[in-house]
Design a binder for these strands. Structure first.
Lengths: 341, 341
DNA sequence: GATAAGTATGATAGCGCTGTCATATATTGC
DNA sequence: GCAATATATGACAGCGCTATCATACTTATC
């Protein structure tokens, strides 16, 4: 047994075998300039033989980078978060970074975040709604001088970068689509008021209705919390009456699914008697019946872009100040809308 | 502005202000014994004032623990992974650990894992199917001497811990449930053969059929990949014939949803003309119509337990050898089964 | 040909902890 | 009462890197 527990190779092992100083090895692995080609090749060769990789913890301790990116979400982990995760991971993988994922149980729970930030030095942090609009969280991040990119925030914050789609415009387009199919009484189910996009989507809906001369009575509006159950409840509220809407626009797909269920409860068939549209292009939307017409956000790309922005900032939050990337959305037409023309 | 960029407090800051040595502070934060109550209180008080938290990177470098737990999944991130994530995070939160989440793109992709393991020292790693049955991955983990807990693995591996439910028994019970409702021709849609549980579920189904004297013809079995589309395809295969089954047991809920869609394509109504059951109690199952009768796995608890096991092992993989936790499952009866009695 | 600027390399000092070892005092057993 | 043990504390080295500074050698500049 010559299988003596061999620990990972260290930078000095590589340096010794390659006949260079530690600093030169460090230069190679950090893509710094001022390394001659032969030394670089030699270092790479030895490193490959030893399967050497710089230690994350040592780098984090010694240097100004940590190679760790944080993503903090609130309690709920659904399809949206999964997709953000995918996008973030795609980028961290390519750049040798690691994703530290955590849940901030309660709103305004900056205490837990404070603890995390006091113990881990992040290269940057990605935030999605509703956490990205939590002022306590943002303030904590500011105090710790950490680059932050917010995905789909509700309100703009000057000193942090944003990646988003135009929710108002998307909701406007979707509403207009319903109108173009001949719908006049179009209900709207709001999103969770804690999520910034909720108001934007409502605005887009209202704008389209207004511009097309369609009244928005209270009977057409229902509150929602982005959950299936709240969608179902909204359906009852909006549909259990003689002059019920012919179409309902739900602020997300999960609620749209709830509306479909609610309509079924009332024996209203979809899409024949009621058209329903959602928002997000959630996994759900192509699985339920009828399949949902919805708005597709390029969530993965938004998340990847967020990581890119963080990496470009090179640890300096100021770099991200005022940066904003607005990506394209797209209407996805499926089977949940009936034309009235 | 006396707001000079104050860096995080360090252990020596706390030590100095508390009038003790660094080591004593270290002892307090690691819950070691042999610290007098007054010194401990003093340290805690000062630490609270300074908002001191030990640096993750420094601890990882200096000590034998890293306070990081890895969770590696294959490409697909769905509801199952989300729930595992929740369970893992619940436990890491309570123990001051951090979750490093990553995707191993391809099967047998031990190279990427190797790189990660060479750069990050993990306290332990949590694996779910199919990664937990990837021999290359397991071997890499073994070589790096990292405690591993496998959730719901297909094949047992002696030197690693397992957290699972009894898939055979669960599938048996579910099949029996269908039989008790009067079904005799019961179709089965297999799971992705790369996932170990697939075979177990098939076995449970076969056992129940056999024990009740029901034949299992080839017409009753369809392959599947755990995806919606594969479920839909299976529906076509199983249902488009005169002697079609009166019930179908899909190896997971996503495929069950696909079967519902496939039945709809063929204008076979559920549950009236066809009963369908799934497995997992996926988010989907209570959202689609009809709501799915399925098997609920305590995924969050399984994941929490996995983290517990890792922490108990205290960095020693041998501690986990042969450990196995089998948690309870439960049948969740919803609306997708029609009784034939 | 001398000065400046660019290129290439290494020596050394930490980063903020934990592990080891030494030491001192308190408590126990007989 | 004295060895044996349990309890309590600190000094100090070192984990594996990066940052800073020093140094040496090139190449350009006038």
């Amino acid at each position: 047994m010559d299988e003596i527990k061999k620990k990972n190779a260290t930078i000095s092992d590589v340096a010794r075998l390659a006949g260079v100083s530690m600093k030169t090895v460090s230069r190679v692995f950090n893509n710094e300039k001022y390394v001659s080609k032969d030394k670089k090749d030699m270092v790479l060769k030895v490193a490959a033989e030893l399967k050497y990789r710089p230690s994350l913890q040592a780098r984090g301790l010694a240097g100004s980078r940590s190679y760790m990116i944080g993503y903090f979400v609130d309690k709920s982990i659904g399809d949206y978060v999964s997709r953000v995760l995918r996008g973030v991971l795609k980028q961290t993988n390519e750049t040798g970074c690691h994703l530290v994922f955590d849940v901030l149980e309660e709103r305004g729970d900056d205490q837990k975040l404070q603890q995390i930030l006091n113990s881990v030095k992040f290269d940057g942090v990605v935030l999605t709604s509703p956490v990205c609009d939590d002022v306590a969280v943002l303030e904590a991040l500011r105090q710790h001088d950490i680059p932050v990119v917010r995905i789909g925030p509700g309100v703009d914050v000057e000193d942090m970068a944003t990646v988003e789609i135009d929710d108002v415009s998307a909701a406007y387009d979707m509403t207009k689509h319903l109108i173009e199919q001949g719908h006049k009484r179009i209900g709207f189910v709001k999103g969770d008021p804690n999520h910034g996009c909720s108001l934007d989507r409502e605005r887009g809906y209202a704008k389209a209705m207004r511009e097309h001369g369609l009244p928005i009575s209270n009977d057409l509006m229902a509150p929602g919390m982005f959950s299936f159950d709240s969608g179902r409840a909204a359906a009852t509220q909006l549909l259990d009456r003689a002059d019920r809407p012919t179409a309902i626009f739900a602020s997300n797909d999960e609620m749209a699914a709830g509306i479909l269920a609610g309509a079924r409860d009332l024996e209203i068939s979809t899409p024949n008697e009621l058209s329903v549209v959602g928002f997000d292009d959630d996994f759900l939307s192509s699985v339920i019946s009828p399949t949902l017409t919805t708005v597709k956000q390029p969530i993965e790309e938004m998340a990847s872009e967020a990581v890119n922005l963080i990496l470009e900032a090179k640890g300096n939050p100021a770099e991200l100040s005022g940066k904003k990337a607005v990506l394209d959305y797209a209407l996805v037409i499926r089977k949940s809308v009936q034309t009235l023309l």
